[in-house]
């Protein structure tokens, strides 16, 4: 595994990289389809994405590469698919990491968010399946959550497209800050 890509590769890569991570079956592939307009098979069935899908998206005037990863439960991989997902995070130097979670099972999912934060990755938390959470009468205070974590938190229901625009806006904010963030470490 090459841990850090060469400097050349990094400066040559004109495209910003947006990486989607999360537990299996939380909607990463749906988001991938929404962002790129490409179709990867989506199912109500954990573990169906085992290969990495890449596609292009234009977000707020920036062309970026969107990378869909196999499901992972934690940054310490157990299965081969988790290994693939982590290797991707290590290699790709993402400009934005979108952590997609199932809003209904937030307590089980935030552990990975904390780990991503620990790793210093530029994380956005996307609370997917809000429609189902609401049907269960779960109320989630996403403002408070954003404050706790210190990152943007977006409620969404990807199956119907809810939350996608807001997500794009925030990703685009992250991306416009990309240049300045990269400068200090250029040498």
């Amino acid at each position: 595994m090459s841990h850090t890509p060469s400097k050349d590769a990094r400066t040559q890569a004109a495209h910003a990289r947006v990486v989607l991570v999360g537990n299996p079956n939380v909607g990463k592939s749906v988001l991938f389809n929404r962002l790129t307009g490409r179709y990867v098979v989506v199912s109500n069935y954990p573990g169906t994405t085992v290969e990495v899908a890449r596609g292009q998206a234009r977000i707020g005037g920036t062309t970026c590469e969107v990378i869909d990863t196999p499901g992972m439960y934690s940054l310490s991989p157990i299965t081969e698919e988790e290994r693939v997902a982590r290797a991707l995070l290590l290699q790709e130097q993402p400009d934005v990491v979108i952590h997609v979670v199932d809003a209904k099972n937030l307590d089980r999912m935030l552990s990975l968010t904390l780990q991503l934060l620990e790793a210093g990755l530029p994380v956005i938390l996307l609370l997917n399946m809000m429609d189902e959470a609401e049907r269960l009468h779960l109320h989630i205070d996403h403002h408070a959550l954003a404050k706790h974590l210190g990152i943007p938190v977006i409620p969404a229901s990807l199956i119907s497209g809810r939350g996608v625009e807001e997500l794009k806006n925030i990703v685009s904010e992250y991306l416009s800050g990309r240049q300045s963030r990269n400068l200090p470490s250029a040498d």
Partner: peptide, 24 residues
Amino acid sequence: ILAHRQKQAQAIAQQVVHYPLKTG
């Protein structure tokens, strides 16, 4: 490490998620 992280994750979740009285 896992246990501590999970405990904190659950603590955060408990503060921001309000569960209904009756489980659906």
